[in-house]
Amino acid sequence: MTLVLRLLLLLLAIWLLGKVLRSSAQKLRPATSTLPPLAERIDAILPQTQCGQCGHAGCLPYAQALARGEDSINRCPPGGEDGIRKLAALLHTDYLPFAADAPPQKPKAVALIDEATCIGCTLCIQACPVDAILGSAKQMHTVLADECTGCELCLAPCPVDCISMRPATSQPADWRWGYPVIAIKAVKPGSSS
């Protein structure tokens, strides 16, 4: 009899504890009403390449699908693993490795129009999601390298195949300190390594 009573008491205590914990957790979480809608917050951490490699028409549709829970977080190649990590943190889910059927990641590149070949058909302008291509009918077109996100959407429509992707130029100013290695080596002067 007492055993049953004790067990009941224990269960009651556990239930109470759980309730307290849950309510305190809710209190600690930032009020969701003041935040922008979830889709907007997801969109804010997507890379905005607008390339459609995730299978959606752009970053915002992907974000909306994620917000509705209709897609997995591991489908955006431009975002990289870092992007998946950020999405996982925002959506309170586990990190996932890249989906097996997702296109491979590529280093950032910008489009370049071969200006001698361009026939001025304006098809690439219509394809570019960020209006990074300038030109008008029957005039030579060109890409604003600063605005180009490297989405490659302009490659397919070009009837004369004059658009190619070039790696985003690496300036001397883009130099970064290398990753610190844990074993510190003595310097060998004279040997140009």
């Binding site: 300190w177 290398g178 290695v181 510190i184 080596k185 003595a186």
Partner: peptide
């Protein structure tokens, strides 16, 4: 790689 060249 950068080395802390003097040790204090």
């Amino acid at each position: 790689m950068n080395t802390p060249v003097i040790r204090l």
